[in-house]
Write a protein that binds this DNA or RNA. Structure first.
Lengths: 142, 142
DNA sequence: GTTGACCTTCGAGTTAACTCTAAGTTTATA
DNA sequence: TATAAACTTAGAGTTAACTCGAAGGTCAAC
């Protein structure tokens, strides 16, 4: 059984974040000492690792809640439920990637166009480009 | 001179957002009617277009504040100041892109590994992969 | 037996950029 | 003239995921 700081060291989450996740139903300590200290079993640790992996993969805390409920009762859920969530997240990631790639192209072009020197900015081509409204990117809807 | 809804239509910003930007010193109405209605001159419109372009390009409102102060007094600022801001933003965008690309790769691999069918999730390879903690991505510092 | 590290809860604060509401005024239209 | 659309301000609410602080209890070591 691990104490919270040990679980923190193991997962890379902070103790604060572990308690925060607990409040949101993502992680739990199956035991408490008489004085209230949290103690984490092997199963608790695995669950925490799952949460951390899912977080690293980009899933929201809400997504993770759903994934955990599937993980807890695999018999009652299909693979398709899992791939649906995963595909949806991939779609979001791709959408955001497209936006950021457009921004990158724009920023690179701006940098190429400007001398970047110590001259004063009277004819700075970056300022001019932004003035012209030439830039057209759409921000994410979510 | 345009009214706020006309400026909104022209820039694609909402009237709410225009007032919000005004509160933050990014946009201003150089005139007010006796009853307090905002009226935007050509110069005001250009400034609003600048703000919108910069926003589309990914600059934060704080960045835009700095860019506007340069734009307002180009003589006292160098091109380098402008490219510094732009380069910094490009660095941020690239960093976020790298994170998202890692997420994308992970999500794609997860999807490839799972049947996605109506079978129950007892042996779902996505759940298993997340359980294994196999996924390793670092979230952004900012 | 005391010091210091670690633990507890509860609740507030942070960040960024909006977004909305309410209550009231002004203007344009039919 | 009546009504609807558009405008005003001030301030609160939203979102996501933490992050921090205060006030105090617990535990291990020396």
């Amino acid at each position: 059984m691990l104490k919270i700081s040990e679980l923190a060291a193991l997962t890379g989450l902070s103790a604060h974040t572990i308690r925060f996740y607990e409040k949101h139903g993502l992680i739990e300590a199956s035991q408490r000492s008489g004085s209230g200290y949290r103690y984490y079993s092997d199963a608790d640790v695995k669950r925490a690792v799952f949460v951390k992996s899912a977080r690293n993969t980009g899933f929201s805390l809400d997504d993770i809640g759903v994934l955990l409920s599937i993980r807890l009762d695999k018999q009652s859920h299909s693979c398709q439920e899992v791939t649906d969530i995963t595909q949806h997240k991939l779609d979001e990631v791709n959408e955001r990637l497209a936006e950021l790639q457009t921004m990158r192209r724009t920023l690179e072009r701006l940098l190429e166009s400007c001398c970047g020197g110590p001259e004063n900015a009277t004819h700075c081509s970056i300022i001019e480009a932004l003035d012209g409204g030439a830039v057209t990117v759409t921000r994410r809807a979510s």
